[in-house]
Amino acid sequence: MRRMSTPHGVGIGWRPEISGFVAGLPGLRFVEVIAESVPTAGPAPHELVELRDRGVAVVPHGVRLSLGSAEPVDPDRVAHLAAVAQLLAAPLVSEHIAFVRAGGLEAGHLLPLPRTHEAIDAVCANISRAQADLPVPIALEPIAALFDWPDDDLDEAAFLTEILERTSALLLLDVANVYANARNRGTDPLALLDRLPLERVAYLHVAGGAEGGGFYHDTHADPIGQEVLELLTEVCARHRPPAVLLERDGRYPPAAELRAELDAVATACGFPEVT
């Protein structure tokens, strides 16, 4: 099957709860699907096949490979991600610079790596293992972390840049994660943007979050705040990537609100509206 073209314009994370809404977006050319939610034993879920058949690129987004684990990445998990990419004729896949399990325990969420050379070696080895078995390029997403390791040798820009250079991977830059980290660490998000290779960005993520207990939480279940939208505008003013994707994972608002949010994202980036 011919692969779909790479993502461009405004996309949205496809989730079963909003599949009807997503199917009804007339200008949509790009969605993501959580890779682990797609069964590969039978045919692809028909809603995704219908999107693909109308020319919408479907990007499998992995959340449980644990590329940042000190142990080698599980080949069965890589094989599943590769199979989902084939099934959906995906132009690329994406995953995180993070680990989600260690010592036989599942953390249940993406955890940050220490920004050390030892961790860079481990994650780069796993990315190379994954790349060897994947049929398409991989884009890597830096995560939002509520805490840092005590022994970081590198700052985030140096850490990410070295991983991208050593693996030739693409960057999936999550603007809400950049905002959350800067906010929680008390650093300047623009200073990070200035040092990241924005020309390597395959697409951007953007999502809403909320304050709680003295921290900003990247919930994906709240509206996008004005400050995150402004940061999105800043990123696109520096070097506009080919695409941006809205992630919403819960407390879904009425369709009109979600459409307005997609339009606000399009305006911030200067992309055509898809609604």
Binding site: A102, L111, P114, D151
Partner: peptide, 21 residues
């Protein structure tokens, strides 16, 4: 790194002692 990741996850989800630092 493997042992430190394991200690961190145990502390976060299994009531393990907080890793130092």
């Amino acid at each position: 790194l493997a042992a430190r990741q394991a200690a961190l996850v145990a502390s976060l989800v299994a009531g393990g002692p907080p890793p130092s630092g």
